[in-house]
Design a protein around this nucleic acid. Structure first.
Length: 520
DNA sequence: GCGATCAGAT
DNA sequence: CACATCTGATCGC
């Protein structure tokens, strides 16, 4: 369980045990992974949950949380949130794409408590440090994704990892391929494989549903008998299953993970299993870069439960002293909790009045399942599915109890709810493909972040990856930075990598043709 | 019996 | 070993 209650504030992030956070009133969810939603279920009936639009969809669909209580916020906009009943005291929050999994965000909180950067889970990229909400600010606290906070944790960019995986698949032309993944994340790896190898990727219906929810290009099929590459849950990659699969036909398994770096690889002696370093978290070197750039006064690690490596006596990954020399040593400014906020934090729990049918994730998925589209040969999906869901929160939020956080600000009703944009940051739609001439020629191995992934793939696999570039005209909704000059965020940064989170695919026809299913 | 919570395993 | 899970035990309603 990787959440935090921020002391002396009504803020809780990725923390859902109300008994253990009786003063928390404003809840944020960084992304839809199980270790960040522990305790969040369909019976959540108290406070609003703030998250990205993508995470909102996932939380409602997978966990069955009352949609009235889930508020999807835009990225890159400075939004005002009330910290008491009346809006006397407020803070601002800015969501920044965390480059981790679809919908994942970092939160920047600014208020009477100072400035706090909460990374959630993230993979560092240069975009972080140049972001207008981060650059030039003095942060009092950095809540840091310390998953791989160990000098041993050194691994390639996701681009390089993608290329490595492609090579493994290519060098086993006679084998079927199973890729072990968790429920959410690494979708772009799958998409790259599909496009470069011109093949469908087999997935189970639950994953298919997720991919449709994320509006991924339709390169996925549930007809797993007809494909040669398919996805399974990572815990299905076992010795027993490998043997079973190979008793039918030659099969290799790929585990894209950095889990075993700096540790023992349990698959070291298992035949036909390839553990490929592919990380959705920052390497140690990337963490150093990030800290050096943010220069916080204090760092609080987000991940506490690391197991000890052999010979390790203390959990070194939670020791933030390794960053001491990169931090700001000036004393934190003192503050007191405003009286109205104090009242807010001790007030009675407000419960949502609307009763909801309780549902398990699976049940809920079945209920919300869209009508299956015929599985053709050309992607992306039909126009009907490319229509983005319009902002339901307009209605939902107004119906629900607004008391706790509504800011009845002036003017801007663009998102029609209890959040008001500050500083007149405007959003605009730009289109961008995957081609990224900017990064051409740079070395991309080692500590590089994932931000240049597609250009790298393009460079290495040549014409094939041009397919990626030309096929997916991606609409990036991005904010024009106040500082100017960095408006092409989609192109310069990691959005290409995990940007499916906030991007809409398939707003144009494209010409890539996958092999017919049976030719696998 | 069900949900919340946690320990343990992979 | 342990990314993010999943399973099973326990407790309380």
């Amino acid at each position: 369980m990787n959440g935090a209650v921020i002391p002396n504030t009504p803020i809780a992030v990725d923390f859902w045990r109300l008994r253990h956070c009786s003063h928390s009133r404003v809840f944020f969810l960084s992304h839809m992974h199980a270790d960040h939603t522990a305790g969040l279920t369909s019976s959540w009936n108290t406070y609003k949950i703030y998250c990205s639009e993508v995470t909102r969809k996932l939380v409602i669909a997978k966990l069955g949380v009352n949609s009235d209580l889930v508020v999807g916020l835009p990225l890159d906009e400075c939004l005002i949130i009330n910290l008491d009943e009346t809006g006397q005291e407020t803070m601002t929050v800015t969501l920044v794409d965390a480059n981790h999994c679809p919908g994942s965000v970092m939160f920047i909180f600014e208020g009477y408590f100072g400035k706090i950067l909460y990374t959630g889970d993230c993979r560092f990229c240069d975009r972080f440090t140049s972001h207008s909400a981060i650059q030039g600010k003095l942060f009092d606290i950095l809540y840091l994704d310390n998953t791989y906070c160990d000098p041993k944790c050194f691994f390639p960019s996701r681009t390089q990892a993608t290329v490595n995986i492609m090579k493994i698949i290519r060098s086993h032309p006679e084998c079927k391929v199973v890729i072990g993944l968790h429920n959410l994340g690494k979708e772009m790896l799958l998409h790259s494989i599909a496009v470069v190898l011109k093949t469908w990727i087999g997935v189970d219906p639950v994953r298919k549903e997720t991919l449709e929810l994320l509006e991924m290009p339709n390169v996925f099929t549930c007809e797993i008998d007809k494909v040669w590459i398919r996805v399974v849950k990572s815990n299905e990659i076992t010795k027993k299953n490998i043997q079973h699969w190979n008793s039918n036909e030659p099969t290799i398994a790929i585990l894209p993970t950095c889990l075993y770096i700096g540790a023992t690889n349990p698959y070291a002696n298992v035949e036909n299993v390839f553990v490929v370093p592919y990380s959705d978290h920052s390497s140690f070197e990337e963490l150093r870069k990030f800290v050096q750039s943010v220069k916080p006064r204090k760092i609080i690690p987000i991940v506490h439960k690391h197991r000890l490596s052999p010979g390790e006596t203390i959990n070194s990954r939670v020791n933030m002293n390794v960053f001491q020399s990169l931090m700001d040593s000036s004393p934190s400014s003192q503050y007191t909790v405003p009286r109205s906020v104090e009242c807010f934090m001790t007030a009675e729990i407000q419960r949502a009045t609307k009763q909801r049918v309780k549902a398990t994730g699976k049940l809920c998925m079945r209920k919300t399942a869209k009508i299956k589209k015929p599985c053709g040969v050309v992607f992306p999906p039909d126009p009907e599915t490319t229509e983005t869901e319009t902002d339901k929160s307009d209605v939902d939020v107004n119906e629900s109890d607004r008391k706790s956080t509504v800011f009845k600000g002036t003017g801007d009703k663009e998102h029609g709810q209890d959040i008001t944009k500050r500083n007149a940051v405007t959003s605009s739609s730009i289109k961008c493909g995957f081609a990224d001439s900017e990064s051409r020629g740079k070395s991309d191995v080692g500590s590089d972040s994932g931000e240049k992934d597609y250009s790298m793939v393009q460079r290495i696999t040549g014409n094939e990856m041009n397919a990626v570039a030309s096929s997916s005209s991606i609409k990036c909704v991005t904010a024009v930075s106040e500082s100017g000059g960095k408006s092409n965020m989609g192109i310069e940064s990691g959005e290409k990598d995990h940007g499916i989170a906030q991007q809409t695919f398939g707003d144009e026809q494209n010409s890539i043709v996958l092999r017919p299913l049976n030719l696998a």
